[in-house]
Measured scan of single mutants.
Amino acid sequence: MAAAAAAGAGPEMVRGQVFDVGPRYTNLSYIGEGAYGMVCSAYDNVNKVRVAIKKISPFEHQTYCQRTLREIKILLRFRHENIIGINDIIRAPTIEQMKDVYIVQDLMETDLYKLLKTQHLSNDHICYFLYQILRGLKYIHSANVLHRDLKPSNLLLNTTCDLKICDFGLARVADPDHDHTGFLTEYVATRWYRAPEIMLNSKGYTKSIDIWSVGCILAEMLSNRPIFPGKHYLDQLNHILGILGSPSQEDLNCIINLKARNYLLSLPHKNKVPWNRLFPNADSKALDLLDKMLTFNPHKRIEVEQALAHPYLEQYYDPSDEPIAEAPFKFDMELDDLPKEKLKELIFEETARFQPGYRS
């Protein structure tokens, strides 16, 4: 834990890192770190609560700039109880001085990944967590956004079992017609939660990839272990087919990539493993919904509104309290091709509203 900075004593240090967030945020305490930044909790002297502050230093890398800009653009436009918001952003007053960006968010005690390492969940908890994931996802999908990296560590939890989806750095506007060349190379989302079509096709992607990830998360809540822990690309596919069985001819016809289709045709026939054999203690309604989410063919996979209306979630289902976005989200430009200098300018502009004396 960093010592509390005395008023006016300059930035606090946390594990050798400068955290320049005073005077409003003090009493910093280390939480963890990701690929390009550290997260601390801090005391907000204005709202009198502890908050989470993520320090991001992305400006050396085009990919990190892209992810940072995506996350900020999306989260500043989203407003939903099951999606983490941005409360404040701290950065230098000029673009030349801006080396880091500090993002202030609600402090959540833990995440689903940490929880599943230590606790076996009751059916009631599984049901409530799944409902909140789908409630947040309904809003995301209504904005025409794909999260693309749903996994237990991106689901934040607090002691009252509130759940918030975080990390929109890989999110995209849904565009089933656009052929994202190089899709697989830039697709760094965790393999275990990846839909089979991501490994088999490169053309376009749809909201059904997020539903697949939610199915993987439900299976993990039922058993405290990942359902498809593939060691590499082909191993991942083999794990999936080992449980779902061989795809039907109709399902194979959806695979545009001939090499991928021929690979699947070359494999020995596998039978589907019954879900109640894998999860003998699970609620039968939970397994019915799991089956509809972990469907090989993305066109037959359940959609988020149908999933919310499934009998497993009937005690929570309330369409009048499951809000959607006001308007579909649009990125003005494809960020993939922009140089990091341009992305830095866009991050600077996007964060201006939090600067003292800002006038829109």
Rank of each mutant, 00 (worst) to 15 (best):
L346Q: 15
D291H: 05
L116A: 10
S57C: 05
L156Q: 15
I211V: 13
K164A: 09
F228H: 01
K55L: 10
V39A: 04
D332Q: 08
Y30N: 14
G357A: 08
Y193Q: 10
L130R: 07
L234T: 11
F129V: 07
A9E: 05
E334R: 02
V21D: 05
I103Q: 09
I240P: 04
D44F: 09
G230F: 01
N281T: 15
L338I: 07
L137E: 06
E303C: 08
S29K: 04
T185V: 08
N144P: 06
N224K: 14
I165K: 07
S153V: 06
E186D: 13
P11H: 15
E81F: 08
P196D: 10
T181L: 11
C166R: 12
L170C: 04
T351S: 15
N253W: 10
S223E: 13
F279C: 07
R301N: 03
T206V: 12
N154K: 14
Y187E: 06
Q355W: 07
V49A: 04
F354K: 11
A327V: 07
K340H: 08
N158A: 13
N123L: 09
I83R: 00
Y30M: 05
K48T: 12
I56F: 15
E197A: 10
A325D: 00
E305V: 14
F168N: 02
A282Y: 00
Y205N: 15
A174S: 15
I140Y: 05
R77A: 05
R353P: 05
E350R: 01
R15G: 13
I140G: 06
C161W: 01
K114D: 11
P23E: 00
D177L: 12
H239G: 10
H299E: 13
K231D: 00
T295R: 08
E60D: 15
C127M: 13
H120M: 11
P298L: 09
D251T: 01
M333D: 12
N253A: 04
K285D: 04
H125M: 10
G34P: 08
Y263F: 15
I86Y: 02
A2H: 08
L237Y: 11
Y113W: 10
Y233L: 13
S360F: 08
D336Y: 14
L252Y: 07
K342S: 02
I240R: 05
T63P: 13
V51C: 10
Q62C: 13
P319N: 06
S246W: 01
P339G: 07
E349N: 01
T295K: 11
L155T: 02
G245M: 04
M38T: 04
E305T: 00
D235Y: 15
G85R: 02
D179C: 08
L163R: 02
V18K: 12
F348Y: 14
Q306S: 03
N224W: 10
I53G: 01
Y193D: 11
S248N: 03
H299K: 12
R225G: 05
A5T: 13
S320Y: 14
D179T: 09
H147D: 10
Y263S: 04
A282I: 01
T190S: 15
D283V: 13
K164Y: 10
G204T: 08
L343H: 11
S202P: 11
I74Q: 08
K48M: 14
L107A: 08
C254W: 03
I86K: 05
Q66E: 11
V304A: 12
P311I: 02
I256D: 08
C166F: 14
D149H: 04
T185W: 10
M38Q: 12
D177A: 15
R24K: 07
P229A: 04
S153E: 09
R135T: 02
D177F: 07
K342V: 04
P247H: 15
Y113Q: 09
N27H: 09
N158Y: 14
L218N: 09
S153H: 05
N297K: 12
R91S: 15
T68M: 03
A171W: 04
K340T: 03
H269A: 01
V14I: 13
R191Q: 15
V14T: 02
L146S: 08
A282P: 07
N253L: 13
R77I: 02
E322V: 13
K344P: 07
L313M: 15
E314K: 14
G242W: 00
E334D: 15
Y312W: 05
A352F: 00
N224P: 01
P280Y: 11
C127H: 03
A6Q: 13
R194Y: 12
D175K: 10
H147I: 04
E349Y: 00
D283N: 14
L157W: 09
A52F: 06
S122G: 02
T63H: 09
P23C: 01
T206W: 12
S284N: 08
R261H: 07
I209V: 12
E33F: 01
Y64V: 09
L116P: 10
T110Y: 10
S41P: 00
D167E: 09
P323E: 05
V173E: 15
P152N: 04
L278H: 03
H141F: 07
D111F: 02
T181I: 12
L115I: 01
N271S: 04
F19C: 13
K99F: 03
A143M: 09
D177K: 04
T94K: 08
R24N: 05
A286L: 04
L343C: 03
E60S: 03
T190M: 04
L335A: 11
K73Q: 13
G136N: 01
N82Q: 13
K259I: 04
Q315P: 05
L150R: 03
L294W: 02
L237D: 00
N224E: 09
K54L: 03
V21H: 12
L115R: 00
N47H: 11
Q119H: 13
P274N: 05
A4V: 12
C161A: 05
K342P: 02
E326Y: 03
L137Q: 15
A52Q: 04
S208A: 14
S360K: 14
T206C: 14
P298S: 11
Q315K: 14
P247A: 09
L346F: 00
I103C: 09
L184A: 13
Q17S: 04
L170F: 04
D44V: 10
V18S: 01
I133L: 13
V46E: 07
E322A: 15
K300L: 08
G357S: 10
I56N: 15
Q355N: 03
L289Q: 14
Y30T: 00
L241H: 03
Q132P: 08
G245H: 07
K285V: 07
R24A: 02
D336M: 05
Y30H: 03
L264N: 02
A92G: 00
S360G: 12
I256P: 04
F329I: 15
G136T: 01
P226N: 00
L278F: 05
A286P: 00
D318N: 15
R261D: 10
T110W: 11
I347C: 05
Q355C: 04
D175A: 15
E33A: 03
K203S: 11
W192V: 10
H239M: 09
L75I: 01
E96F: 06
F59E: 06
D88W: 00
L28E: 04
I89V: 11
H239I: 11
V39T: 02
K99H: 08
A309V: 02
E303I: 02
E303Q: 00
N123C: 10
D235Q: 10
H299S: 05
P226D: 04
F296A: 05
Y64G: 09
A309P: 04
A5V: 13
I302G: 10
A42C: 04
V104R: 09
Q306Y: 01
A309M: 03
I240W: 05
G37R: 14
N271M: 05
S248W: 07
A7Q: 14
N281M: 09
Y187L: 05
E303M: 05
F129Q: 08
Q249R: 07
V46K: 04
R359T: 09
K292L: 07
A260K: 06
V51A: 01
N262W: 04
M293R: 06
K207N: 12
R261P: 10
L115A: 05
N201A: 07
G242Y: 05
D20L: 10
E220Y: 05
D175P: 02
M98C: 07
S57V: 08
D44M: 08
E81W: 06
R301T: 07
H232M: 01
G357F: 00
H125P: 08
M199Y: 07
R353N: 04
